[in-house]
Amino acid sequence: MRKALSLVVLLVLALGLASALRGPSIGAEANRGELLDDQKVNFGRRYNSRAVEETGASNVVASVLVTYRGLDTLGEVTVLFVAALGLAVLLHTGRDRKSGKEAEAPSLIVFTGCRFVFPLILLFGAYIFVHGHLTPGGGFQGGAVVASGFLLIYLGCRGRQPDRQRLNAVESLSGVAFVVIGLIGLAVGGSFLLNFLPKGSPYALLSAGIIPVVYVFIGFKVGCELGGIVADLSGARR
C-alpha cells in the first residue's frame, strides 16, 4: 500500500520534472546564444569576464565563493558550526558508549604508518586551502583533507587523540576571524566582506586580497569541525 502510494507520488513528480525540462531547456548550455546578448543579467558570464580583474583570483569559483557570495559562505560555515554544536548537544547526555570492550590496539605497523602519514595529510590539506584562489580547491576542500587526517588518527592510533578543547577553540576563533574580516571591510570601505587588501598580481600566491586569508581560516575551521564531528560520532570523547 505504502509502496504503491509512494510510487504514484514519484511518478507524478517525475512527469512534472520531465515537463519542466522539456522544450528549450534550462541552464547555461541552452542559454548559450543568449549569453552574447547584453540585456539580461547573467551572473556566470559577468563573473567569468570580470572576476580576475575585480578580485585578483584566477580561480573564479573561489572569488564567487569568498567575495561575490561571501555572505553565503559565512552562512555555510555557520551551518557546519551549528551542526557540530548540535551533534555535541545530542551526544552529550548519552550513556557512556565505551561499554566494556576496549578496542583492540592496532598493530605497530598501522600505528607507525598512521603517525607517519598524518603530518603529510595535514600538509596536503594546508596546501589545498592556501592555494584555493589559484587552483581547484579551497578552504572547504582543504579542511576536508585535514579532517581525513584526524579520521586516520581515530582509526589507526587509538589513545593518541587531538585535544578536543583546542579543536573547539580553533573552530570558534576562525569563525570570529571570518566575521571580523567582514567587519573590517565594512569599516574601511562601507561594505561587508569588502576585499580591502591589495589585490597583487594575478597567479601569484600572495594575491587576491582577503580570499586566501579567509580560505585559511575556513580551512582551519572546517578541518577542526569535521574532525570534531568524527570524534563525537565515534564516541572517542569519553
Binding site: 543579467v41 563573473y47 561575490y68 561594505s191
Partner: peptide
Amino acid sequence: TAGLPPPF
C-alpha cells in the same frame, strides 16, 4: 556586500 552594486 563585497563592494559591488546589486544584483552582482
